[in-house]
Structure formats: C-alpha cells, structure tokens
Simulated scan of single mutants.
Amino acid sequence: MDRYPITGRSLEWFFDIDGDLFERQYKHHLSGYWQWKDSTEGLHAERWRVFPQNIGPRLSIDETSLSRGELYTIVTNKDAHGRKNAIVAIVLGTDADTVIHALRQIKSALRNKVTEVTLDLSDSMNKICRMAFPRASRVIDRFHVQRLALDAVQEIRIKHRWDAINSDTDARERAKLEGRKYEPERLENGDTLKELLARGRYALFKSPEKWTASQRQRTEMLFSLYPDLKEAYRLSQNLRVIFNKRSSKDSARLNLARWYDRVADSGFKSFNTIAATFYEHADEILNFFDNRSTNASAESINSKIKAFRAKLHGVNDTKFFIFRLCNIYA
C-alpha cells in the first residue's frame, strides 16, 4: 500500500474520513462561522444582509427559496455575471417595507448611482425598486411577460383536455352498461383525443421553428380540432415576435397597442386579463427596448442556490447556509 510521505499513513486513511465529523469540524472550527455568528452582521443575518461594496449601475431583483419554501428577496449586480461579488442584498421575505429598510442600510449616494433594475411583474418588487433606487429605470423582464401569455394558451388546452377526459369517461360507462368492450377512437397519429391534448403541451411552449416532426403533426391536429387554441397560440407568438424585434421603444409601443386590439377582438378572458396587466405596467415593459435587459442574472443566481442546496441535501441551519452563500457570491 502506498504511504503518504509526511504522516506515513496509508492512502486508505484519507478515504476513511467520517463525512459528518468533517462537516462539523468545518462548521465549528475551520469556516469562521462561529465568530461571525455572534458578530453584528451575524446577529441579523437570517433577516437581512447587505453588501454595499457590490452595488453597481445595473441590478436585478428576484425572490428565491432557501429552505422549506421560505422566500428571500435577492438583489444582484448584473456585471458580476453570477460569480463573486454578485449579491448586493439578501432579505428574508418579500414584504416591500422590510426589503426597503434593509436596502436603506446602503448609503443613498451609492443607491442613487444605480441606473437600471430588472424585475418581474410583482407590485412589491416594483415598489422596492422605486423607493430604494429612485433614479433607476425599472425594466420588467420580457420572459415573465411572455410566460403569462403562454400560460393563457395552456389554460385553454387544459379546459379542452378536461372536456375530452369527461367525454371518454362517459363513453366508457355507456360501453360498460351495454356490455361491450370500450375502444377509444384513435387519431391518425395513434393518439386518443385526451392523449393528443396532453402530449401537445410541450409544443405549445415552443415557437414553430423549434417543433420536431411529431410535435408539428400534433399541433396541426390540435389547431384543426380546436380553432380557439390556434388563435391563442398565435397571440402568444405575436407577443414573442414583438420582443424579438430590435425596434425602438416608440415602435414597440405601437406594436403592443396593436396586440392589445387583437386580444380584445379574440374575446379570450385570460388574455384580456393579461393585456390589462401589461397596460398597467406599460412603461416598465417598454423600458426593455432601451437596452434589452432581462432578469437572467437573477435567474442564474437562483439556479446556483438551488444546486448548492441540493448538493447539501437540504438546509438544516439557515444562518450557516446564508453564511456560506454570501462567502461564495458576496
């Protein structure tokens, strides 16, 4: 057996280390956590932590879950690209006043240097940005906007699927009462109607150029059987085109106004609700066309937090998790 040159112990010794013991030793002695835990920063760490030195002209704000579904609001610096010095603030909860209080621990001179903040459609996030970063342009993430339209399409598909399930159940019951074997009607691709409506779900999230051959066949059949689903999908894709087009803000405003008119003509209740939401946040949505900024940096941090949490098999000590998280990304 090979020997480690300094200790003289066999290399097997390194593979026999108790993982739980090593984790405890790291937490209690090596990491510096216990000294930090009783410091001024550590005492309020579970409620909020801010890092004024990480602030930059372009920020993102979003919410994420650290443990047991408990939500935290995270403000990140876009220019850090999800790496070191990315986290500007991490605050327990999504209450606007609580987050504003934490962010106001950063001097106003620094906060006034922020020129742009990307966010979602949440009113609380909008208020936080307005009060904490008064000179910044607020940009609602285009993907949150598009997702609402795609969800409206899925709502129509789900309604048709429940109708198909109920019809299939009734047909089975009739066949049972008549003493005959039930054979569901199959379409040209081999799907039953309820299978078509279930399996067509994924294609409706995509643009047509990304459909596979089987997805194209399914959507053509769906649109033939359900014209309202075709119209709803067309509206969602028209919205996607507006955001993909590199147009000026004024041109985008006109295109969105035309889209609102098409929504009104469609008569879809879910799309009318979405259009009203868009109209309410029109300025923040149109600000996207200034620099085409998105909330991708915030989503990147969220993904890394989830991966880190999964690697630890969950979070038992929230304060220690925040300590490690901030050491890595703040």
Rank of each mutant, 00 (worst) to 15 (best):
S236I: 07
V263D: 02
E280F: 07
A232H: 05
L239A: 12
F268D: 01
R234F: 04
A282L: 15
R246W: 08
S247N: 11
G267I: 04
K245P: 02
D283G: 04
L239Y: 04
S248R: 07
A232V: 12
A264T: 06
S247M: 14
A275H: 00
D265C: 03
L256C: 00
I274W: 02
I285H: 02
S247P: 01
G267C: 11
S251A: 09
N244Q: 09
R246F: 04
L256Y: 00
D283N: 15
A282F: 10
R258C: 04
L239G: 06
S247Y: 03
Y279W: 06
L254Y: 03
S251H: 11
E284R: 13
Q237A: 02
I274A: 02
N287D: 08
A252I: 00
D283H: 13
I242A: 00
A252P: 00
S247R: 07
L286A: 08
E284T: 07
A232E: 09
I285E: 04
W259D: 01
L256W: 00
L286F: 10
N238S: 08
A276Y: 04
F278H: 06
E284I: 04
R258Y: 09
I274L: 15
N255E: 15
L239D: 09
F243P: 01
E231W: 03
A276N: 11
N244Y: 12
I285N: 01
R262M: 14
A257L: 08
V263C: 03
S247E: 10
Y260L: 07
R240N: 06
Y260C: 06
V241I: 14
R253G: 10
L239I: 06
A252R: 00
V263E: 02
A282N: 09
A252L: 01
F288S: 04
E280N: 14
A282I: 12
D265I: 11
Q237T: 10
F288W: 07
Q237L: 12
R253D: 07
L239E: 06
Q237G: 07
I274D: 01
D283C: 09
F271Q: 06
R240Y: 13
I274V: 10
F278C: 14
D265Q: 12
R234C: 05
T277Q: 08
L235R: 10
A264F: 11
